[in-house]
Amino acid sequence: MFVRPYEPFDRQDVYDICVRTGDGGGDARGLYSDDELLPDVYAGSYLHLEPELAFVLDDGDRAVGYVLGTADTRAWAAACRRHWLPLVSPRYRLVEPPVTAEDHLVDTLHHPERNVLDELDEYPAHLHIDLLPGHQGAGHGRELMRTFLAALAERDVPGVHLGVAARNTGALRFYERLGFHRITGDEHGTTLGRRTDVPV
């Protein structure tokens, strides 16, 4: 088991991991009309726009976990609008106002600018990290996070943030153990932040 940089042949594994952990940490296969919706929202743009900031956990056969993200959320939102949405948005009809859970997810895809918040300026990067259930709890998530934070530090990025669904209490405890602290939140979820110059 080892962490390595993402390669284009990992894309389907990353998409699979995203779906199988996409329901508050549980399996989201079949929840939406298209199983690629979740990874198109939470993984695809990063692989397309900043593949150098994507890393996978390899079990010797395939990727079983990943961490990916952006060094600059504002720049990512603009690039997503220009270069990612034209590729995927025609597949997902925007419903305004959104009603169903799928409508809200599609709405998130169509509005990357909503990730840009003034209160997160000290934490310009953001990330997504997921591991298949059978590979959780063995220190692999910590190693993925350490790798990603080191890549940000090399780019002189001062801080990173991430979002956690309120019901994903296991993930929240994991991030807190890694030094993340609460920035904002409500009954739906919490945004956590961390400086990159603090060791994991």
Rank of each mutant, 00 (worst) to 15 (best):
W76I: 02
W76V: 06
W76N: 12
A77P: 09
A78Q: 13
A79W: 00
A79L: 10
C80V: 03
C80G: 02
C80Q: 05
C80N: 15
R81V: 13
R81W: 01
R81K: 04
R82I: 05
H83Q: 07
H83N: 06
W84C: 01
W84I: 05
W84K: 00
P86C: 08
L87N: 03
V88Y: 02
S89M: 08
S89T: 14
S89H: 11
P90Y: 09
P90I: 12
P90K: 09
R91A: 15
Y92C: 09
Y92L: 10
R93D: 08
R93I: 11
L94G: 02
L94P: 04
L94V: 01
L94S: 04
E96F: 11
P97R: 01
P97C: 03
P97G: 02
P98M: 11
V99A: 08
V99W: 04
T100A: 04
T100P: 09
T100R: 03
T100I: 14
T100V: 13
A101V: 09
D103T: 10
D103G: 00
D103E: 05
H104L: 09
H104Q: 03
L105N: 02
V106R: 11
D107V: 10
D107Y: 13
D107S: 14
D107H: 12
T108G: 05
T108L: 10
T108H: 07
L109D: 02
L109G: 10
H111Y: 09
P112R: 05
P112M: 13
P112G: 03
E113W: 07
E113Y: 09
R114F: 11
N115A: 13
N115R: 14
V116H: 08
E119T: 08
E119M: 00
L120W: 00
L120A: 05
D121R: 10
P124G: 03
A125M: 05
A125E: 03
H126M: 04
L127P: 07
H128P: 01
H128V: 04
H128C: 01
I129L: 15
D130H: 03
D130Q: 03
D130I: 06
D130P: 04
P133C: 08
G134E: 04
Q136W: 08
Q136D: 02
Q136K: 12
G137C: 06
G139F: 09
G139S: 00
H140K: 06
H140L: 12
H140M: 10
H140P: 00
G141N: 02
R142V: 15
R142K: 14
E143F: 08
E143N: 02
L144A: 03
L144Y: 12
